[in-house]
Design a protein around this nucleic acid. Sequence first.
DNA 1: GTCTATACTCTGATAGAC
DNA 2: GTCTATCAGAGTATAGAC
Lengths: 219, 219
Amino acid sequence: MSPPPAPARKTPRDGARAPTRIQTRIQARNRQAILDAALAVFSAQGFRGATLDQIATEAGLSKPNLLYYFPSKEAVHGELLDRLLDNWLDPLRALDPEGEPVAEILAYVRRKLDLARDYPRESRLFANEILQGAPRIMGALTGELKALVDEKAAVIARWQAEGRLQPMPPQHLIFSVWALTQHYADFDVQVRAVLGEGHDPWAEAQGFLEGLFARLLRV
Amino acid sequence: MSPPPAPARKTPRDGARAPTRIQTRIQARNRQAILDAALAVFSAQGFRGATLDQIATEAGLSKPNLLYYFPSKEAVHGELLDRLLDNWLDPLRALDPEGEPVAEILAYVRRKLDLARDYPRESRLFANEILQGAPRIMGALTGELKALVDEKAAVIARWQAEGRLQPMPPQHLIFSVWALTQHYADFDVQVRAVLGEGHDPWAEAQGFLEGLFARLLRV
DNA sequence: GTCTATACTCTGATAGAC
DNA sequence: GTCTATCAGAGTATAGAC
């Protein structure tokens, strides 16, 4: 099968009025509005629970108009997951092999908790996807994610071998950071129901988790 | 509105053959098959992602036949949640105020991890429900669950005041047990993807979590 | 680019034969 | 109690006017 020919360029001559520019700006704004709305709906209802009507209404568009910007519901969801994965691993990537071990991991916990607090919808979108068996991102899990964890686990293991960090399985240490930070985003409603009024879950979580990991990691 | 009259008893005379007994046994078996199938499907797909066709097929019945046993999809789901909530809090209930503090909490972690390992579908059913804002069990969260956590948190606080346990916010300590144990059930696919071949996630989790909490709780 | 109208499919639930 | 047939509504996606 031969690839389709490259599309003819439609760019207007320099100096001419460029309506496509304006359209492009409108398009960018609408695409972003759709993605924002879709994030809200997908993270709260799951992929199948979400409907294009909900997303379109939330974005201030009609359903056919939404489908002008994205070819399908799948496409919107996939775009969200792609963008999410781009940023999701940044806190772990930033773990510095040359830094002071305990401080580095505490800083990692802090970054991860900040991410969960500031982007809880992204966290729930991810949780939904994993809960359903990660049908759309399994490749990223076994590829990109595993590679990053392996790399950082080796750093942690080296720190432990050097006696600068309490020995424990490095992968499970990383899991514990994920579990504890994401819990406050994904199970937010349960956390608030149990704590009742007069609590600031995120502030308390930060203090608690810093204390927990400081105590856990010290040699 | 007056209540409907009590139905006439259909019980056959003693000694007569009792077909209703046999039917009752079949009914019990079918109801159980439906609930088993529904648990598998709801926990993997969420409430809206699941279809009655899937559940009926998995249970070896036709869709109308399923609806002979349960009046609606909601009813099946609700029954599952009711049964789940009955057992979900047992590990925490068993925390003995008269026991040795560290040993009691370690035993609690062990029970909770066993439950997650043996009933991962129940854990995912619960996670799905919470992720979507707990629309069907909010009452249980703010009622039964909060009351139990308050009670046990007071026990933990007393232990801490007596100097028999490291001071830390009791509610968040309980959250950490939930987060860390349920993570291995709910995010099982991610855990396995990251660990790769040749690992036994549950065995490793047990060792890791026992070490973690032992270190954390010791005064 | 955006809308109204609509085609088509899936799904929850019911009717009625057996 | 179980099945076939079917309805009604929701939901994804498309056609075509403007």
